[in-house]
Design a binder for these strands. Structure first.
Lengths: 151, 151, 151, 151
DNA sequence: TTTT
DNA sequence: TTTT
């Protein structure tokens, strides 16, 4: 019955995170990141192979994502593979695979991220006059307490 | 451009491996394994949550799978997430996620596996009068040389 | 400042766990496990290379170790590297590396472990007339609540 | 006999790499990296906990280290724990733990590293008039062929 | 869709 | 579809 289901990724966000605030203080962020592998083929030409991964972050991690991640951000994440299954309108079995993130570390140098919450996306509303510093640390899954915000 | 795409799983095979011998000495094995997570819910009831993963093993690893793995076998694998994308007949974008295995360790105790190649599946043909021992070691990806067989 | 410090091991215990019950309900278990790598050298001879790792488990994990692990048990663990430094009597700087375990999965088949707590070691005292089943699941770090015991 | 011995680290170099060119085209680089964990204690104070790891890179990886890594560089590495044992002059058993690196990904943004080989350390000799670009990719262990250099 |  |  025992099992291990672990994923470790390092890559860059393809878009700003999509964040939904649900009832009961729940928050979920959806993020997609690219992991690129680069190698030489037999002819000696460099080949890039990019894989895209759909990440799902909840609560404290989702808030961090909302405040600090944006298109292009480089992150390390640890999580598990999660498959949703359903039947589509034609009655076909469909599956969708996501990575449920359990742990995240931001890898951008701080200078790339001096903007604070609300400041680091293509949405320039909600400008913060006393910007907070970005966290430079690992953040783990947990309840949506403010204590999960690393500052 | 740099990236990391790593998966680590420990689980049991749901079925015997499906092995195809392709031209040019290539071999591929498809295997699905279950990773089960077990926890207590708020009411204190034990809940099992099983995730199924489609594995793809090539060449040396595929031969090992063919010879030694069967329904129920417990394995540790390391690999990477690989998504195939295509359009179905209705023109919908479809994706299928697999784990390309780069490293495998068999976790069954040797006594559970004393049968040799051809002996450990529901197919009882090809019975081997001097059965080989199962390997108890880690095997990595590589060319389909016989040297990849761990004995 | 951010960092990742992660270790993943699969191996067998070299001895029964050494468990200490400290004041304040704290429990610590020390366990050493062997990870063996097996390969062929240039001459085609099989070579075994064994590495020993000192594990440290706390509280809930320590209790699991005490109840269910014994010499020879095969486990999967996830943890982090931890170095203790001190000066010895000669004034030399000394270091000792341990793995602080954060997650453990027992990999022995249940039939190898039907004995319950107190029953699974070379010490046959403390025989339990209504033996509990061994857990077959992953257990994580946490406080020493009884709820951490997986049954 | 089977085993898994895997370490995953993300951290920054404490010093420039120490590189030795041995006979027979062998190269070894020694590097130490810090992984810092940051958390709030019970009183709500932020606490940093830094762990230092001694890495050992061979051949192709050592050459990459020599050319591109320097004090402060942030890297992702995958490797295995390796313990050397010996007796010191007083006859005490001594051990030293190192991480043998099998895979490395550089995590600094390219702009932080535009200097080429020979240019990125405190040693300014061997200045290269047509500096090469730093690799932004994952590099694995292997023979010391020039083909291992990712450019 | 990222990054270099 | 596994395992316990």
């Amino acid at each position: 019955m025992a099992g291990v289901n672990k994923v470790i990724l390092v890559g860059n966000l393809g878009q700003d995170p999509e964040v939904k605030h649900l009832e009961g203080d729940k928050v979920v962020a959806n993020v997609s990141i690219a992991t690129t592998e680069s190698y030489k083929d037999r002819s000696g030409n460099r080949v890039d192979n990019t894989e895209w991964h759909d990440l799902e972050l909840w609560d404290g991690l989702a808030k961090i994502a909302e405040s600090y991640l944006k298109k292009g951000s480089k992150i390390y994440v640890e999580g598990k593979i999660k498959t949703d299954s359903w039947q589509d309108e034609q009655g076909n079995n469909r599956k969708r695979v996501r990575i449920r993130v359990q742990n995240m570390t931001m890898l951008d140098s701080r200078s790339d991220n001096q903007s604070g919450p609300g400041n680091n996306s293509t949405n320039y509303a909600n400008n913060n006059s006393s910007p907070q510093q970005m966290p430079s640390q690992t953040v783990s899954e947990g309840p949506a307490d403010d204590d999960d915000l690393p500052f």
